[in-house]
Simulated assay, not measured.
Amino acid sequence: MKKGLIQVYCGNGKGKTTAAIGQGIRATGHGYKVIMIQFLKGRATGELETLKRLEPEFKVFKFEKQTKFIFEMDEEQKKDLQSDIKNALNFAKKVLDTRECDVLILDEILGVVENELLSEEDLITIINNKSEHIELILTGRVLPESIKPLVDYISTVEETAHPFYKGVAARKGIEY
């Protein structure tokens, strides 16, 4: 890739990860290699099953052992989670250093920052150390103000309605 930019999919609506995956699939269609590192996502999802079929062009990595939501964790589990996140971040840095892919997706990295498992400064360092040849995609609900000037695309996914509020539980194949 001649010039890799930085994309963000953020907001409280559904579809940020799906949008990032769609961008990754588009890239593989043009011969680019994609790596996605998922954070704070313990549950298996349908799209991950599909992405296995795209290997080795599109690889997905998860480092976290916890399957609970962060608000359900005790202090020991949060400590373990922080260790897993550190391992994932070290891997992301290695991928950026070695240019192992053309597109790197850090799925829910903004949630890691929001939950204070990574500082804004650490994320800024990752962004600033990105090779100019790698497209970097970040997802999560809240985009810190300090990050906005560093990115090229910001797409906000807004929730205006959701079946959860009508008592409809998450559905296999639709929400996960």
Rank of each mutant, 00 (worst) to 15 (best):
T17L: 10
I134R: 09
T139L: 04
K166D: 03
C10L: 08
D122R: 09
F69L: 06
P144D: 04
G13F: 10
L51D: 05
Q23P: 05
I70T: 00
T156C: 10
F61Y: 14
G167M: 04
F63M: 03
L106I: 06
Q82T: 06
E116G: 06
E75C: 00
K59M: 14
L104R: 06
T156E: 15
S119K: 01
Q66A: 15
V60A: 03
A88Q: 02
G173S: 02
A170E: 07
T50V: 14
E121G: 09
P144M: 05
V95C: 06
I109T: 02
K79G: 01
E159H: 06
S83R: 09
K172S: 15
I147R: 07
I70P: 02
G167C: 03
L89M: 13
L106N: 08
L81C: 00
L81S: 00
P56A: 02
E75W: 01
G140S: 12
T125Y: 13
F164K: 05
E120N: 06
K148Q: 15
Y176E: 12
A20Y: 07
F39W: 02
E120I: 15
K59R: 13
M36L: 14
E120H: 04
K148E: 15
V103Q: 07
Y176A: 10
Q7W: 13
F39L: 01
Y153E: 12
E72R: 01
D97Y: 13
I35R: 13
K94P: 03
V103N: 05
F69R: 05
Q23K: 14
G15C: 11
H30I: 08
F61W: 10
R53Q: 15
L5E: 12
E55M: 03
H162E: 02
R53Y: 13
I21A: 11
K93A: 14
I109S: 09
Q66V: 13
E108Q: 06
M36P: 06
G29C: 10
K2G: 11
E175K: 01
M1D: 11
L118Y: 12
N129H: 15
I126R: 08
I134T: 13
E114C: 07
E158M: 13
I127L: 13
I127F: 11
F71M: 00
D97V: 12
I154F: 08
G111H: 05
Q77G: 04
F61P: 06
I154L: 12
G111T: 09
L138G: 05
E47G: 03
I154D: 10
E76L: 11
V60C: 03
K148R: 15
G24Q: 04
M1G: 14
E135F: 07
I174A: 00
I126N: 07
V142M: 09
G4P: 04
K52Y: 01
M1C: 11
G22W: 02
D107R: 06
G29P: 01
T50M: 13
I134N: 08
L40M: 07
S146N: 14
L117N: 03
V151T: 07
L138Y: 07
N115L: 12
L51K: 03
I21R: 10
P149N: 11
E121D: 15
V103F: 10
T98Y: 07
D122T: 05
G111I: 11
K62A: 03
I25R: 12
Q7I: 14
T18N: 05
K86H: 12
I70S: 00
G173L: 05
G140H: 12
K62H: 07
L150G: 09
A88S: 08
